[in-house]
Amino acid sequence: MRTQFGSPIDYFLELGADTIHMNELLGKPLHMKYVGQQCLNCGKDRKIYRMGHCYNCFYELPQTADWVIRPELSKAHLDIEDRDLAYEKDVQLQPHIVYLALSSDVKVGVTRKTQVPTRWIDQGANSALEIVEAPNRYLAGIAEVALKQFVADKTNWRQMLKNEVAQEDLFEFRAKLSQHIPEEVRPYFLSEKSDKWDLDFPVQKYPAKIKSLNLTKTPEFSEKLAGIKGQYLIFEDDTVFNVRGNEGTVVEIFIS
């Protein structure tokens, strides 16, 4: 889902040529029907392997290479190609942010500066604080590797959806972690940055006991939409549907 920062955040689901403003559907019944699968790259009716792509495309495209998930593997700053050097230079050789976010417990992560605050919205973070602004992806990646020895780098998605978020001071966390910033990244440490992002999600009711919807096993599903957080749809009966995790799935949606 495409998002727009606001209070609350606006969500837009793009289905082919159609765009649905999901906030307007809160409290209304939705009917979802599984149709099939379609690779986001080649467009063929193939089983989705990862990140919305079929097996062949996943292992060929530059945007699904290992450095995407593990920034410390970036090599474009060394003029070394992984899959497509022009693409890798375009993405890797731009400012990147290392941040602390509160989605469940405090976590550390990396995102391109142009993806602020979209990255935190997609993770369902209630708040976030930028702690490093590095000139490339590699430096941000080695900072993350160093810091995740002392703070988590993953979100507990169940706690995030239940809105069970730790009460932590991100500024205090930044101060504690400052001594663990790698030497070559220290010039980019944002020790005095005072702008913290607070995010407000359009949720009428958080789930008490989560049930995850798998449309390949349950091809049709109907229920009232109770909220949206991260890239999840939350339904009245505590069912949740991971939109990002189902990229490449062809779905028909009927609105009552």
Rank of each mutant, 00 (worst) to 15 (best):
E183I: 06
N214Q: 14
A65V: 07
E88H: 03
S191Q: 06
L15W: 11
K193T: 05
G141M: 06
F58H: 15
Y34I: 01
Y232G: 02
G36C: 04
K75M: 14
L161R: 08
V91N: 05
K211P: 03
E72H: 15
P182G: 12
E14Q: 12
E184G: 07
D18V: 09
P207R: 10
Q38P: 03
L102N: 04
R137W: 05
K148C: 00
I97Q: 05
L40N: 06
R137N: 01
L61C: 05
L102Y: 06
D237F: 09
E183R: 10
L61W: 10
F150C: 00
D79P: 01
K205T: 09
R186N: 09
P95G: 14
G124D: 00
I142T: 05
I69M: 12
L129I: 00
V106N: 00
P135W: 04
I253Y: 11
N56V: 06
A101P: 11
Y87R: 05
I20H: 11
F5T: 08
Y87I: 03
N242R: 10
A101M: 10
N41Y: 11
A208D: 06
P62T: 14
R119C: 02
F221R: 12
V35Y: 00
E14M: 14
K154I: 03
E24A: 08
L139A: 07
K47H: 08
L93F: 04
E81M: 08
K89A: 15
V35G: 03
L199K: 06
V91K: 12
S103K: 09
S191F: 03
I48H: 15
P219W: 14
L78G: 08
P8Q: 10
L225I: 15
F189E: 12
D153H: 15
G16H: 12
A134K: 02
S222D: 13
Q38V: 00
H96K: 15
R83Y: 02
R158G: 11
Y55D: 12
D79V: 06
V165D: 14
L100R: 04
Y55S: 04
E192L: 01
M1N: 06
Q204E: 13
